[in-house]
Write a protein that binds this DNA or RNA. Structure first.
Lengths: 221, 221, 221, 221
DNA sequence: CATGAATGAGTGTTCATTCAT
DNA sequence: GATGAATGAACACTCATTCAT
């Protein structure tokens, strides 16, 4: 968990009084500890099998402490997902602005997301578990998390501009095509992790496989 | 739940004594009731949030009765998934043999699966939930359910023969491509259901969208 | 389970109408079947672990049938104990009358009881389990079972007459001494069964061991 | 439940830091509460009829609290029996060493055990219930509880040394004779409790009755 | 009468959450 | 603020008993 993204949470851009900052910084440090532990445990066991006790132990805090930082299990989970998405989104935005063409942007999007998940395998499991979940009433709030929506919109915008640049076909909506891009992406990453050590394909070759399949499809040309 | 598939379970090809059949048929009818209820509840709440009580109530049986037909929650869940997959697989096999070319087979595969999920929206949620789940130790047995494997193999074989017929590119493995086909498929169906009533695209147009994206990709040609 | 003792239950000494007798005899036969099964299962698993299903299966009847003959699990259990005690008591009375002296009667009592338990090892487990149980509210009714009381009284009478004949000391009550006799007896039989095959002492030698310890005690003379 | 015996569990012979001791002592206090409640309830209802809820209520704790101290019902039961036996055994060892002759030791053994059960009537019921139980698979582990075995061995050693000192006859094994001593003992205590208030014999007279019957038997000399 | 499917109260156990220290 | 013991609602599952066939 990137502490920076936590600090941003607060938008404390007021003049930083030292004593408050110290307190605040400590708080964020602990929050990050707990989120790190939660990520590990949720990835390992899934939402329901993971207990708050597990997470507290992994974080090396008492269970009561966890509740000091997160109102309940749900909030912890949601916060975890939110921060991760925020981190990912920050990277994507930062890197894609460098590119000129929409195609380059898509390439960068794929490469950077791949690389993000490589560094965050635990989160990938959670990410995958969460896509597609409309059930689980409580956790369902996820879909409304603004970062998740922002991430989705980011991809849609990517496709939209590619459509404008005549790189992506325009006979289907950007949203539909964006979903398909993400789907293909997830499928590839999923297999990558499942195969584990043996595959160890490098990121570049995987990137180009995804891009190729996405752009050109499976048919013989 | 299709009662036929339940009845097939028994391979009762012996001379059908009426009295025995009656008992047996009753049993299967009730089993189907419960599976139907389970499908509904699991789809609505997911595996963990669904309680045996919920399912019993939905099926209008007492809790004990459910246990008369399924040894535990896990067995009920597994049985549900297994039967659904079996139904789907039976349809797919039956319909694809009619086709001559591999391309036709893929078309039929898409159309029939689409149509199956249209009739089994509840199961679709479960299906989606299950793909991607490596955690959840017990439920994890699912991946080993032979019908699930058979279904996967069926799709791989479909791709393989399309590769042999030079319809699908051969620079990637049939398995990789099969995964992508299923991914695209799932993504489309997922959105279809999410949009609910408003979209109501017809099956044929959706089929051709999936096929188009799968074969030709998203790039402008 | 001795069918005779079951028949006695009814004290039907009225003129035996044939049709009724037939019905009645059938009924007793089934009752005996079930009691036999219950004896086996209760001995194996104990009262609580034994299920009515277990017993029905062992008896090769449907569960409903068991309830046709015994009002509930408790009644079945009680009936079992009662019949066994009745059988034992009948034997003891029949055999001890043959003896002249009180000492002979005691010898016969020991020998016959030993021999009864040899033939009814299953019942012995139940018998042992039951002695000493005041807890288990429901089963506690046992202590009031008249046969159990009769059996106890029989032993007390045995001791009493031995006291009158100056064979047994009179400085303690017959009841106290009777309890001790039974205790010693149970302890020996318990070990006999526990040791199982290896010990295989014969009945006579065990009888005399019990009698010796009971009469002369453990002290060196 | 004697808190001392619980504290001994820990063999805390390290320098007793106060803070640690406090926590630990609290824990043992609560454990003792629960064991006390369990003793009461198990004695009253027996193992199976006693519910964890009953015990929790008796102990005035919530059900979850009981599980904080004992992993399951079985563990609670076993722990109870173990602690009681340990207490008894400690007393017996402590008191019998004071005696010189084997006969004195036996006298002390009888007197102290009598006195222990007078203070632990509830446990006596459990003790009696447990002797004689070979069935009940789980609870059957009891027989292997080392304290139970140690207690038995203690009595056997008592008899053995009495045999060596020519006080107890040697024509039967110490084990056989030990069993008989315990049997007689149990029988007397059992009646003592059953008669309840009216009997109120004093311990000394009961001791000598047991010893007399055990050593000299029931025969007129 | 015999059957055994159906019932649902009751049990052991877990775990998110609270709160006194 | 930090702790973790205490709580009790909730769940999966069992089994004695009933009753329609």
């Amino acid at each position: 968990m990137n502490v920076n993204s936590l600090i941003e949470d607060k938008f404390i851009m007021e003049k930083p009084r030292q004593s408050l900052n110290r307190r605040e910084r400590d708080r964020l440090l602990r929050q990050a500890d707990i989120l790190r532990a939660a990520e590990h445990v949720f990835a390992l066991k899934g939402y329901h099998e993971a207990t708050m006790q597990d997470i507290a132990k992994e974080a090396q805090y008492a269970i009561g402490t966890v509740y000091l930082y997160f109102k309940d299990k749900d909030a912890l989970y949601l916060s975890l997902v939110e921060h991760k998405y925020r981190d990912l989104l920050a990277i994507l935005k930062e890197e894609t602005v460098k590119a000129k063409t929409a195609k380059e942007k898509i390439e960068i999007f794929i490469y950077e997301t791949l690389s993000f998940f490589e560094r965050n395998q635990n989160f990938f499991r959670i990410f995958v578990s969460e896509r597609n979940k409309n059930q689980e009433i409580k956790v369902g709030k996820l879909r409304k998390l603004s970062v998740v929506i922002q991430h989705k919109e980011f991809v849609v915008e990517l496709i939209k501009s590619a459509q404008e640049q005549q790189i992506i076909r325009s006979d289907f909506s950007a949203k539909q095509i964006a979903d398909i891009l993400i789907s293909i992406f997830m499928s590839v990453v999923f297999n990558w992790f499942k195969e584990g050590s043996k595959g160890i394909k490098n990121l570049s070759s995987m990137s180009s496989f995804i891009l190729d399949m996405f752009l050109n499809g499976a048919a013989v040309k």
